[in-house]
């Protein structure tokens, strides 16, 4: 970071109680306190949030798109993990 180039932060906003925080975008700020305030001003101007997280972008570790297949495809062929896989006789309740 040069003297004037503030680091990048990722912003997560909880839009209302009961929902999880969702990625809203990013912004620049010199530190966490101002990042939170900038996020409040930028991403909740129209009452979009009740809680905000800010995370330095450099702290995020992401799965690589190049590893998409080994990461995510193996889970696609295990239908027995889903309730719809099982046939239940008609009339059986509460299952």
């Amino acid at each position: 970071m040069t003297n004037t180039d503030w680091p990048l932060w990722e912003v997560f906003v909880r839009s209302r109680r009961g929902l999880s925080h969702t990625h809203a975008g990013s912004l620049h700020a010199p530190d966490a306190e101002l990042a939170l305030r900038n996020a409040r001003d930028l991403y909740t101007r129209r009452g979009e949030g009740v809680s905000i997280w800010v995370v330095p972008s450099s702290s995020i570790t992401a799965s690589s798109p190049d590893e998409k297949d080994p990461f995510f495809e193996p889970s696609a062929d295990k239908p027995y993990r889903h309730p719809t896989f099982y046939e239940i006789p008609e009339g059986v309740k509460h299952l």
Partner: peptide, 11 residues
């Protein structure tokens, strides 16, 4: 002085 402050001061 910085875009983020445009938004903050206007608020």
């Amino acid at each position: 002085p910085v875009l983020e402050e445009e938004v903050a001061l206007a608020n």
